[in-house]
Amino acid sequence: MKQLILIVEDDLSVKKLLEITLKEYQFNSISSDGKKGAMMLFLTHTPDLLIVDLGLSDGDGKELIEQIREVSKTPIIVLSARHDEKEIIAALDLGADDYITKPFSINELLARIRAALRRKAQEENISQNVLCGELEMNLASRDIFFKGEKLKLTPIEHELLKYFLLHTNKTLTHKQILKEVWGVGYQNEMQYLRTYVNTLRKKIEEDSTRPSYIKTESGIGYRFSCNKE
């Protein structure tokens, strides 16, 4: 069954590009050029995923994200212009799953759509193990293995890696990670996050200046990538 994607975008050329691409790659799509229309379509068609442009002509895309998150966990991918880091962070903190900046490559967008849909499917039937590249986490024992061997991690490194493994292929803002791993009240303690990402990279990356798992999204946060399958 084809999956349905709702496009919320007021730039006609971008909208057209998205519609054609999605059709080409076996997705169904519906689209709206404004916030209000989008909410209507969302409620009547229950799409599997949304692509939302942040700058809409009839208001802020963030408000739409907020409204949708009140009623549903449907994956949302945000489209945004460069230089909008604050906007992107705000949208992610409001519950958007991922973002992509214009001009974007179609392959990257498709990869993010697939990752978001896959994550949604995984959440619906939790398995015994989380697999990511050469990393494996046993959900029952909470042990993490790298290349078949148990990783030696400090408690915080372990918590951080666990959080990453449970949220793979998704952009996580600094704030979100700090809040989930260190706890409420630590949202702005960037030095902890930088330090532990650095030490964790030394343990799982082949070359920590060219990371293949923990990718930095400059000014926004991190993305734990599992495309190395």
Binding site: Q191, R194, T195, V197, N198, R201, R210, T216, S218
Partner: peptide, 14 residues
Amino acid sequence: YEWCDFEDILGVVL
């Protein structure tokens, strides 16, 4: 201003 890790920055640059 924020805490920066040059190794992390290099990853982005490369």
